[in-house]
Design a protein around this nucleic acid. Structure first.
Length: 640
RNA sequence: GCCGGCGUAGCUCAGUGGUAGAGCAGUGGAUUCGUAAUCCACAGGUCGUGGGUUCAAUCCCCACCGCCGGCUCCA
C-alpha cells in the first residue's frame, strides 16, 4: 500500500501497521514546518497511531502545530492527561467522557465528593509530572467483548455504557503509561508534546446532559503548544472579564437587575435608557423609511388568544402563569405575533396592499429557568425589535432580501461586520405543504445569495411552522452572539385564518415572516457593552462631552461653552467642582466619556477651549466652532 | 430545575462564637490647582431572609431568596 504525504513524499506502508512506523523516515526529511502533529484523510483527522488500509494510494495532508486541528488533537490528549492524573490521585473516580472543545477540553468524572480548587492544583502538578515522563501513547483495537471485560475490570461503569452503544464491532483504546481509556482518538505521539496547559474550573454536569442521569464533575482546562499562546489566552479571558456587561453596567450606571424587583427583570438607568433611546429612534426612523408601519400592542391578553395561536400547546413551559380577572384568564405575552395578526385582520386585505409590514418594539415576558438567567443576555422580560411581514408567495424572496439588507444596515452601524449565518430547513414534524416549504427554503437561499452572504445549512433544524435564518455576529473579542432571526411561518396564517382577496377575486392565504434584527434590546445592549468595552462611539455615548473648569474663576466662561454645546444638541455634562483638573479628568476617563472640554485662564483669554479625547489625545486652544464642526461630522452615522 | 461556590456600608473587599472594619463614592470644611486620584473631618451596616444550636450567632446547623460558574462542543 502506498501513501503520499504532502511535504514529505510517497511511502509504502503495511496496511495493518500504524503510521508511526514511518517516523524514522519522516524525521530524515527536513520539512520546514517540522514533524506533523497528525494528518487529514478525507477531511477526517488521523493520528500516528491509526492503521490505515486501502487498495489505492492514499493522500495525507499533514497537520502542523499552529492549526485548529492540531490544537484539537493536543487538547484531546490533554484531557487524557487530566483523566490519568485523576485516576492516580483519586483511584475511586470513574471516568465519563473527555473531549476537546472549542477553547480547551474537559473531562467528566464521577467522584464521591466535589473537586476543589486545591484538587485542581494537585492535579495540575500531577499532570506536569506525567508530561515530563513523556509517556508514549499507544492505540489498540479490541472486540466489544474484550473491551467490556477490560472496563468492567477497571470498574469504569460509564465506559461500559458507552461501549454498549457503539455501533461497530470493534472499539479502540488508547493507553499512556498505566492509563487506559476508551477513545477513538486522535492523539499525540507522547504526553511530552503537551507544552502549556491549565485547569480552569470545575462544575457539575449531568451524565450525557440528561437531568435524570447522575451528576458528574466536569473539570475544564485548556492547552496549547506554546506558553505564549496559553498566556495570551489567559489575557483574553481577563479582557472578557473586564468587559463583562454586568460589571460595566453597574460601573457606568447603565442598567440594574434588583433582587427586590425580580430575577431577570431589567431596570434601565438614565444613561442606559439614553443609549436605548438613540437606538430606538434610529430603528423607528429607518423602519418607517423602509415601508414598515409602527404599531403598539398590550403586554397582556386573554389567554384564549394563545390557545388559538398554539402557544399554549407548544410554548407554555416558557410562559408566565395566567392571571384571573372577572372570571377570565389573562396571559402575559411571550410573543407579539398574535397581536399583529389582529392588526392585519382589522379589515379585508387586498393583494394590492402587499407586502404589509408591521413593526413594534414589543416587550415580552418569558419564563426562563432560574439557573440560566445571565445579566442582560438571558432575562425574563425583554423588548424585541419585532416585525411581521405579510406577503404573497411571489414576493417572499424580495421581502427576504429587504430584511437582510436592513439587518446588515443596522449591524454595520454598530461595527459588526462578520457573521455566521445558518439556514434551518424542514424538520421531521412540520405543518404546511412540503412543496411550499421547499419554495420558502429556496427563497431564503436565493435571498442570502443575492446579498452575497455565505451561510451554512442546518438540515432539519427549522421550527415546525417554517424555515428560518439565524444570524450570529462576531464582536471585537471574536465571540459570536446570536441576535437576528428571520422565520417564515405557514402556521399562524392558517390558525387565525388569514386571507386576502387576490387578483382573481378569490380568497388566498398570505405568507407571514417573523423577524427580529437586533433580537432583544436588552440582549443587544449587553452585547454592545461588551463589544465596545463600555466606551460607546461618540454618536451612541450617553454623555458625549464633559466640560470642566480649572479654577472657579473660569466658571462663567465654561458655563457659556456648556450652554452652546447643549444648544447645538450634544449630550453634555459639566464638572465645575473645586477639584484639581487631574481628578476631574480621571473621573471623566473612568466614565468613558469621549470628549473632555477643559477651560482655564488660557482658554478664557484666547476665547478658545482645550479638548482631551478619551484616547488621551489633547488638542489645545481651538475655537469652539471648529470643535463643534468636527463633532457634527462624527455624530453623523457612517455606514460603510 | 440540578450541582458547586458566594451573599458584610452605594461600590470593591477585610474580619471574628462575645452584637463590625478599610479604600473609593457621599456630606461638611480647607485648597484655586494645566491633562488619570489635594488634605482634614463627618456620616453611613437589623453582616441576604427566616428558623435552630448556644449564656451569647454576622460567624456553627437547616430552610428559603438572590448572585456567580456549569449542566451532550459526545468514547
Amino acid at each position: 500500500m502506498k501513501i503520499y504525504i504532502k511535504d514529505f513524499g510517497e511511502f509504502s506502508l503495511d496496511p495493518e501497521k500504524p503510521l508511526k512506523i514511518l517516523l524514522p523516515e519522516l524525521k530524515k526529511i527536513k520539512s520546514e514546518k517540522g514533524l506533523p502533529i497528525a494528518f487529514k484523510l478525507n477531511g477526517e483527522i488521523i493520528d500516528w497511531h491509526t492503521p490505515i488500509s486501502a487498495s489505492e494510494t492514499i493522500v495525507l495532508e499533514p497537520i502542523y502545530p499552529d492549526t485548529k486541528e492540531a490544537l484539537e488533537v493536543l487538547r484531546h490528549t490533554a484531557s487524557h492527561l487530566l483523566a490519568q492524573a485523576v485516576k492516580e490521585l483519586f483511584p475511586e473516580a470513574k471516568l465519563g467522557i473527555g473531549p476537546a472543545i472549542e477553547e480547551g477540553f474537559y473531562y467528566d468524572i464521577y467522584y464521591e465528593r466535589p473537586f476543589t480548587e486545591e484538587d485542581l492544583k494537585s492535579l495540575e502538578k500531577k499532570i506536569k509530572e506525567l508530561i515530563k515522563r513523556n509517556l508514549p501513547l499507544e492505540r489498540r483495537e479490541l472486540s466489544k467483548d474484550e473491551a467490556k471485560e477490560l472496563f468492567s475490570k477497571l470498574k469504569e461503569d460509564f465506559k461500559l455504557e458507552l461501549i454498549e452503544e457503539l455501533p461497530d464491532s470493534k472499539v479502540s483504546i488508547y493507553t499512556q503509561g498505566e492509563f487506559i481509556d476508551l477513545c477513538k482518538g486522535p492523539h499525540l505521539l507522547s504526553t511530552g508534546q503537551v507544552k502549556a496547559f491549565k485547569l480552569l474550573s470545575v462544575s457539575g454536569a449531568y451524565w450525557r446532559g440528561n437531568e435524570k442521569n447522575p451528576m458528574l464533575w466536569r473539570i475544564y482546562g485548556t492547552a496549547f503548544f506554546k506558553d505564549e499562546d496559553l498566556e495570551s489566552y489567559l489575557n483574553w479571558l481577563e479582557e472578557v472579564k473586564k468587559r463583562d456587561h454586568r460589571k460595566l453596567g453597574k460601573e457606568l450606571e447603565l442598567f440594574a437587575i434588583e433582587e427586590d424587583i425580580g430575577p431577570g427583570l431589567v431596570i434601565w438607568l438614565p444613561k442606559g435608557a439614553l443609549v436605548r433611546k438613540i437606538i430606538e429612534d434610529l430603528w423607528k426612523e429607518e423602519h418607517l423609511k423602509r415601508g414598515y408601519h409602527l404599531v403598539y400592542t398590550p403586554h397582556i391578553a386573554l389567554r384564549d388568544l394563545w390557545k388559538t395561536s398554539g402557544h399554549l400547546d407548544y410554548y407554555s413551559e416558557n410562559m408566565f402563569p395566567p392571571m384571573e380577572l372577572e372570571n377570565r384568564a389573562y396571559q402575559l405575552k411571550p410573543m407579539n405575533c398574535p397581536f399583529h395578526i389582529y392588526i392585519y385582520n382589522q379589515k379585508r386585505r387586498s393583494y394590492r396592499e402587499f407586502p404589509i409590514r408591521l413593526c413594534e418594539l414589543g416587550t415580552v415576558y418569558r419564563y426562563e429557568r432560574s439557573g440560566v438567567l445571565h445579566g442582560l443576555l438571558r432575562v425574563r422580560g425583554f423588548t424585541q425589535d419585532d416585525a411581521h411581514i405579510y406577503c404573497r408567495e411571489d414576493q417572499l424572496e424580495e421581502e427576504l432580501i429587504q430584511v437582510l439588507d436592513l439587518v446588515i444596515y443596522f449591524l454595520t452601524l454598530f461595527g459588526f461586520k462578520e457573521y455566521q449565518i445558518f439556514l434551518s430547513t424542514r424538520p421531521e414534524k412540520f405543518v404546511g405543504d412540503p412543496a411550499i416549504w421547499d419554495k420558502a427554503e429556496e427563497a431564503l437561499k436565493q435571498a442570502l445569495e443575492a446579498k452575497g452572504l455565505s451561510y451554512e445549512i442546518d438540515p432539519g433544524e427549522g421550527v415546525f411552522y417554517g424555515p428560518k435564518i439565524d444570524l450570529k455576529i462576531k464582536d471585537v473579542l471574536g465571540r459570536f452572539w446570536q441576535c437576528s432571526t428571520i422565520q417564515v411561518d405557514f402556521n399562524l396564517p392558517e390558525r387565525f385564518n388569514l386571507v386576502y382577496i387576490g387578483e382573481d377575486n378569490q380568497f388566498h392565504r398570505p405568507i407571514m415572516i417573523h423577524r427580529a434584527l437586533l433580537g432583544s434590546l436588552e440582549r443587544f445592549f449587553g452585547v454592545l457593552i461588551e463589544h465596545y468595552g463600555g466606551a460607546f462611539p461618540f454618536w451612541l455615548s450617553p454623555v458625549q462631552i464633559k466640560v470642566m473648569t480649572l479654577t472657579d474663576r473660569n466658571i462663567p466662561y465654561a458655563e457659556k461653552i456648556f450652554q452652546e454645546l447643549i444648544k447645538a444638541g450634544f449630550r453634555v455634562e459639566k464638572d465645575f467642582r473645586p477639584e484639581k483638573i487631574n481628578y476631574k479628568i480621571r473621573s471623566a476617563q473612568l466614565e468613558k466619556i469621549p470628549y473632555m472640554v477643559i477651560i482655564g485662564d488660557k482658554e478664557e483669554m484666547s476665547q478658545t477651549i482645550s479638548v482631551r479625547k478619551r484616547s488621551g489625545e489633547v488638542i489645545q486652544n481651538i475655537k469652539l466652532s471648529d470643535f463643534m464642526e468636527t463633532l457634527q461630522k462624527e455624530n453623523q452615522i457612517q455606514v460603510s
